[in-house]
Design a protein around this nucleic acid. Sequence first.
DNA 1: GTTAGCACTCGAAAGATTTGAGTGCTAATA
DNA 2: TATTAGCACTCAAATCTTTCGAGTGCTAAC
Lengths: 348, 348
Amino acid sequence: MELDERKKTILKLIIATYLETGEPVGSRTISKFNDLNLSSATIRNEMADLEELGYIVQPHTSAGRIPTDKGYRFYVDNLMEEKEEAEVEKSTLLERVDRMELLLKQVAKVLAYNTNYATLVTAPKYRKTIKFIQLSKVDEETLLAVIVVEGNLIKNQIIPIDTILDNEDVLKFNILLNTFLQGASLEDINLEMINAMKKQSGEYSVILDQIFQGIVDAVNEANELEIYTSGATNILKYPEIGDISKTSELLEKFEDKEELSHLLEETTGNKDDSHYIQVYIGEENPVQNMEDCSIVTATYKMPEGATGTIGIVGPKRMDYKKVVSTLKNLTIELDDIFSKRKGVNEDG
Amino acid sequence: MELDERKKTILKLIIATYLETGEPVGSRTISKFNDLNLSSATIRNEMADLEELGYIVQPHTSAGRIPTDKGYRFYVDNLMEEKEEAEVEKSTLLERVDRMELLLKQVAKVLAYNTNYATLVTAPKYRKTIKFIQLSKVDEETLLAVIVVEGNLIKNQIIPIDTILDNEDVLKFNILLNTFLQGASLEDINLEMINAMKKQSGEYSVILDQIFQGIVDAVNEANELEIYTSGATNILKYPEIGDISKTSELLEKFEDKEELSHLLEETTGNKDDSHYIQVYIGEENPVQNMEDCSIVTATYKMPEGATGTIGIVGPKRMDYKKVVSTLKNLTIELDDIFSKRKGVNEDG
DNA sequence: GTTAGCACTCGAAAGATTTGAGTGCTAATA
DNA sequence: TATTAGCACTCAAATCTTTCGAGTGCTAAC
């Protein structure tokens, strides 16, 4: 059964009121909206219908109604009008900073501050190709490998070696490594390439193995999805999220960040839509023990096509309108920053 | 008034019982300890004395007694016998890992897992002198500076430049920088040195400024006190720490880490005593809003003399004995790791 | 289709009652 | 003089009771 206009209006009023007050909404409250001109009895009839259809429920017999997940979903998809583009305050939230890491930390912080929810931000994800390798001798037993990958992300690796090398040897290695590896990603490094390099390195092929290991480790590390979080303690502000033990589990997820990465990987790049906004409500969301939460994520893009995610975790009773507009704002700002200065510096 | 032996015994029993049960301890409970052979009435008299002296209080008239801060302090200083050195299980808690950062993160995690309290760990603090600088050209507009400071801590800095340099210029800069800066710490770099370098660099003195800025930034960053935390959510397990708002404030401190650094700076290096253990009880502790917590810290040492701190934050009702022995254990293990492999690699 | 009216439900808040662990004091005892 | 038995007293916590009112569903009238 389709909802007629009046039912939609009433559902919208119920949800909007509930979002504001947090109390179950009764029929009299709704009947008082004077553009409706209906008695509470009529509203009650309509409410009974809406309940039967699964959009709202009563916490107990003699209480008002609150939205179900289905109700929220309908609200977000059909009833909630977003702020007009013009209305959105284009306030500059972000301070420009050089290093990617600091920038994203800042994004997480600003978002938490503006929404009062727990926030998460991932670094942009793209194919990490090697741009430049610099091997230097730190002392007799150790080499330092500095690997710069696409996007100016820099990784260091200390490599212990058995054989003593002189400076000339190190120079040779540098040339060898850069010749073969520049522009390569992890997947490009295959046995064939390794053997070719070993052949050229002659007597030093054992050391090459050690160096290789270091480089692979570093690039692997660069490929790890980095997650920045902020405002996790905001979760404590929302008692509806659950009792202490549930809250605690949630907070642990934010401390670990492990599970969050699964969540964010699912959201990223599902669509080409720019600033793709995704809303998970209650049971919909892919992480365990988060049935009482809603998650809203947005995707930002770098000019080179790399994408990252910013998102918030909060209670189902959440100001979706505000959250969506704040997220849009921030992604626009981020896109802006990235397009204006090509290559914000990264550093791990 | 000095406490006589019997009062000491009774105080010890009260505190030990309270640590175990968390309930106020009544006179009958104590009188049942059969090595005491005293009636509850006698205990009551002694308890009244102990209360007058400020070691214990009643939460309300008809309740048993709980320790005051003064009581805990006396217990920790005089009554609690630590586990015999031999008794301490010398279990190896730490997995060996290469990078300092990962090692310390692991320490924080292990400690949290073993104690069920919130833990904090600082990296060792010492005078960071420059060991080695390597400048390389990434592309026409960017230089990469790699700065290795004492302790194999590596910092990278991307330096944007206006003028185009060829490889020979970069080589010259490398020699210049290393000649002047090797062995220097931040304080050693003064105007005189800068001017001398500028003189030698001739036409490139403007670029030198840019490079300098990058290096100073990097060394500054290396000097920042890094703090690793774990198990912050354990705070939720201890309701005695306070209501939601207090708990929340505490958790925020752990998210920020800012304030924690003040705390840890105070504890570090107060004494030469190896594995110096420090206990702050309730009001004693130097951080605001932590009156209901106790903090226990221990100092570890690297062979070169650098020291760092590991510590835990928990409720005043804490198993001090266990915590102290766990901390001692871990610092011993850490010292061991550092002494066996000189120079665990650091990386920021 | 809408509404006024009414009996009914049930959670939340406030008050009353009971229970028991624990105390302080006093007077007797060793 | 130190210890103890005994007893009246206190008070938090648990449990039950009462009251209150917001909100409902249903019915009959408009």
